[in-house]
Amino acid sequence: MDIKDIIKPENLVYAKPRLMNDNPMHYCPGCSHGVVHKLAAEVIDEMGMEDKTIGVAPVGCAVFAYNYIDIDWQEAAHGRAPAIATAIKRLNPDKMVFTYQGDGDLAAIGTAETIHACNRGENIVIIFINNGIYGMTGGQMAPTTLEGMKTATCPHGRSTELYGYPLKISDLIAQLDGACYVTRQSVQTAAAVKKAKKALRKAFENSMAKKGTSVVEIVSSCNTGWKMNPVAANQWMAEHMFAKYPLGDLKDI
């Protein structure tokens, strides 16, 4: 049998999502961003919302998210994505609007914008990548960095005496009346990927049903920033990150 006879649509079991374009990704091999991008692209496509979706990209590793998912985007100033998404959604209530932010963007410089957008119950989705580190700028300490974890700006390990504690911002958001759905997921196994996709679908549906703000935190690995190989990074994440940031729904109403 020739290879051409095998590559036929009826034999297809998996394909690149239609909304992912052909731009080579700048993410490191082993990074969680690529998987989460793929899930977002699949959900938007499956909901038939390609022409009504506007994404807001952050400052951080995902600054170029707009290069990969084939929808309209706005690139935000550092931390301001929820304010930008607020205006896009309020001015265009029929559109589906989401932000895609890392922990530095969402939980440090953008804390005020994040908390207040959620508290107003903006009908948007916030996809929150928590890898406990600033990836883009070279592995500095983030508000989510674990106790004792070494980074470029806490090379001797995060001391709670000096820098306080890992910020569980999703737990904080879950306390806000405007947030309807807050969940913590991961994408390091096939089962986890499936669950994360379901969570994203629910979040996007909530936003169109005007239920309030949905936050999907994805506890992610940054093997480059953590100075590990991808496999070891995923193991370390399951062992240490999940202990501080347990997976599951924090709120679902």
Binding site: V56, Q74, A76, A77, R80, A83, I84, A85, T86, A87, I88, L91, A112, E113, H116
Partner: peptide, 9 residues
């Protein structure tokens, strides 16, 4: 800060 970024959006 939020207001001017809402304007941007």
């Amino acid at each position: 800060v939020a207001a001017i970024n809402m304007v941007y959006g």
